[in-house]
Simulated scan of single mutants.
Amino acid sequence: MLVIALDTSTPAVTAGLVAFDDDRPRVLAERVTINPRAHGELLMPHLVDVMEEAGRGFADVEAIVAGIGPGPFTGLRVGLATAAALGQACDVAVHPVCGLDAIAAAAGVSGPLLVATDARRKEAYWAAYDGATRVDGPHVARPADVPVDGYRVAAGELADAVGLDAVEPRFPTPAGLVSAADLDAEPGPLVPLYLRRPDAEEPGKRKSVLTR
């Protein structure tokens, strides 16, 4: 099975083409650029480069996997909108995957693992795992407030910040995204994980300028 993997939930702009056979992902080509302000500019060019390097066309693709966060609004919307459009154009299913799950799947750790990525505002997105199986989270908190008792290692961009030994990867990888997806199941909706209330609020009732 040929699977496109996309993620824009972190500063990494990630696109890859993965062959998924015998429950093992094999990356045919990938492009990753660390630039938190260039998701919209780089994602599709990265994917076009990936397809050309792999010598495959979009008609060969059988599924798409997209990271749904947690992450900031703008980056997530770029990746999810692109994945949804590609799914319609290629007439294939689009499978949502938590980016923290993808990091855990690629870390290859057996036993307790924490995954922490940058949530900005001096906070971290984090989740706890037993191997690649999530047992808690995802949550958002200050790195100092992430519960680390019982854990020795952490993966993700803020692995060092939570005070544990850091292991790779720092960001979701194409292989991790595909490994974390259940490609045999009916895909769920592409609902982004923001984990925060929106900054914008509906205006309240206007105060009268008239006095009695």
Rank of each mutant, 00 (worst) to 15 (best):
A83S: 14
D49Y: 09
R56A: 15
T82K: 01
V78C: 11
A83G: 09
D49Q: 06
E53Y: 08
G55Y: 00
G79T: 10
L80W: 06
L86A: 04
P72S: 13
E53F: 06
L86V: 04
G79S: 10
T74R: 03
T82E: 09
G57E: 15
G69W: 03
A81E: 15
V61S: 04
R77D: 14
A59C: 09
E62V: 14
R56K: 10
G57R: 08
R56F: 08
R56C: 05
V65H: 02
A59L: 03
V65L: 14
I68G: 03
G67M: 02
P70F: 01
D49M: 04
T82H: 02
T74Y: 02
A85P: 07
V78Y: 11
A83N: 14
V61F: 00
R56V: 06
D60F: 03
A59M: 15
E62I: 08
G75M: 03
G67W: 00
G75E: 00
T82I: 03
R77S: 07
D49R: 12
I64M: 01
F73W: 05
A63D: 01
R77E: 13
E52N: 08
L76G: 07
A83R: 10
M51W: 03
G55C: 03
T74A: 13
I64E: 02
A59S: 07
L76R: 11
I68H: 13
G75I: 00
T82R: 00
E62G: 13
V50R: 04
P72R: 04
F73T: 06
P72C: 15
P70W: 04
G67L: 03
P70Y: 08
A63Q: 11
E62T: 04
A59Q: 05
G55V: 09
L86T: 07
R77L: 14
I64C: 02
A81V: 04
E62M: 07
D49V: 15
D60G: 10
T74Q: 13
T82Y: 01
L76A: 07
A81T: 11
P70E: 15
G71S: 07
G79K: 06
D49P: 05
G55H: 15
G55A: 10
R56H: 10
A66P: 14
V61P: 00
F58N: 01
G69R: 08
R77G: 10
T82G: 05
G57I: 11
E62Y: 15
P72V: 10
L76I: 14
D49W: 10
G67C: 15
E52C: 13
L86I: 06
V65K: 02
I68V: 04
G55T: 07
V78E: 11
L80Q: 14
A54F: 06
A66K: 08
L76M: 06
G71M: 07
M51N: 05
A83I: 02
A84C: 04
L80T: 09
T82C: 02
A85C: 15
I68A: 09
P72D: 13
A84S: 11
V65W: 01
L80V: 13
R77P: 01
F58Y: 01
E62F: 07
I64W: 12
G67H: 00
V78G: 06
E52M: 08
A54E: 12
L80S: 03
